[in-house]
Amino acid sequence: MSRVRAGGVPSGWRAGAEASRQEESVHVMKDEGMTVYLAWTSEDLPDLEGPWHEARLVAPGLVAVDSTESLSAVYHAIKWSLEGEASLIVVPVHQTPKSRGMAAGTTRWLRERTARQPPGANIRGLTSSD
């Protein structure tokens, strides 16, 4: 299990350029049994423990996790860590998403764990010739 600390820095990660260097030295192979999930909540994320290998705070209220567990297992682990009736949505990420303004290293982290969109594919997965 992995943790994300409140305050925005995942456990085991140091802020700033040192964190970027640490991340660059780690190469993760795509694991066929591993799924990346994005979870957003309306509350600040507390210390999170759950059925994932790594959890990464990518923006306020938004965390990315990689797990071999089901969507339901990841959703419930996050839900049970929140107080009250916080809004929550968790979705699997099967392709590297387009993003901007996320925490340093987020795009690389996602690319290492998700499939790239095929050249010429549009948002529905159709090629321009379809």
Results as ranks from 00 to 15, higher is better:
G8L: 06
G8K: 02
V9W: 11
S11R: 08
S11L: 11
R14T: 15
R14E: 15
A15Q: 07
A17I: 09
A17K: 10
S20V: 13
R21W: 05
Q22C: 11
E23W: 11
E24N: 10
E24P: 00
S25Q: 10
H27F: 15
H27Y: 15
H27D: 10
H27W: 15
M29W: 10
K30D: 15
G33K: 14
G33C: 09
G33W: 08
T35I: 06
V36H: 04
Y37F: 15
A39L: 07
W40C: 12
T41P: 02
E43Q: 13
E43A: 14
P46S: 13
D47P: 12
D47I: 06
L48Y: 04
L48W: 04
P51T: 03
W52Y: 06
H53R: 09
H53G: 14
E54W: 03
L57H: 12
L57V: 11
V58S: 13
A59S: 11
P60R: 06
G61S: 03
G61Q: 03
L62H: 03
V65S: 07
D66R: 14
S67G: 05
T68E: 10
E69T: 01
S70M: 02
L71R: 13
S72L: 11
V74Q: 10
V74N: 08
Y75H: 14
A77R: 04
A77D: 10
I78C: 07
S81M: 02
S81W: 01
S81H: 07
L82T: 07
E83H: 12
G84H: 08
E85K: 05
E85H: 08
A86V: 03
A86W: 02
S87Y: 08
I89P: 04
V93P: 06
P97K: 00
P97M: 02
R100S: 14
M102E: 08
M102T: 07
A104H: 04
T106Y: 02
T106N: 01
R108I: 05
R108A: 12
L110Y: 01
L110M: 08
R111W: 01
E112H: 01
E112M: 07
T114R: 03
A115I: 04
A115P: 10
Q117P: 11
P118D: 05
P118C: 02
G120H: 06
A121N: 00
A121Y: 03
A121V: 00
I123T: 11
L126Q: 14
L126H: 11
T127P: 00
